[in-house]
């Protein structure tokens, strides 16, 4: 299914996705928006892993399994993050990160 598509295409796509995720991470003020950006970043990494696995080491399974574990970690992270977000919302009545600035000097 991937004949005629060079590896670099996948990598470029993944890096675009990665940096778009970074952009979102830096500019979003809504905590849930930030969480979604992080999901994007994780996905781009998954694409990278799988592309490398398929193109460079087709006899191995590491890429597959790492993606699998990343998905599991992402799921765990999303669950905990959402729990935290809900708690923050309860405490501050907002999910805007600029208002959650108790670390400020």
């Amino acid at each position: 299914m991937n004949n005629g598509i060079p590896l670099q295409y996948f990598l470029i796509l993944a890096s675009i996705m990665f940096f778009v995720g970074i952009y979102g991470f830096l500019t979003r003020r809504n905590l849930i928006g930030i969480l979604m950006s992080v999901e994007l970043i994780l996905n781009s990494v998954n694409i990278n892993f799988l592309a490398f696995n398929r193109y460079l080491y087709p006899d191995r399974l590491e890429g597959l399994f790492f993606s699998l574990f990343i998905i599991a970690v992402a799921a765990a992270e999303a669950a905990v993050a959402i729990a935290i977000i809900i708690n923050i919302y309860r405490r501050f009545s907002t999910v805007n990160v600029e208002h959650v600035n108790e670390m400020r000097f």
């Binding site: 299914m1 998954n46 799988l50 592309a51 398929r54 597959l64 993606s67 998905i71 992402a74 799921a75």
Partner: peptide, 19 residues
Amino acid sequence: GLYFMLNFAFLAAVQLALY
């Protein structure tokens, strides 16, 4: 879909179901 293209059908299914 990309995972399908890369012939990782299982992972694509996981992606759909989990994500």
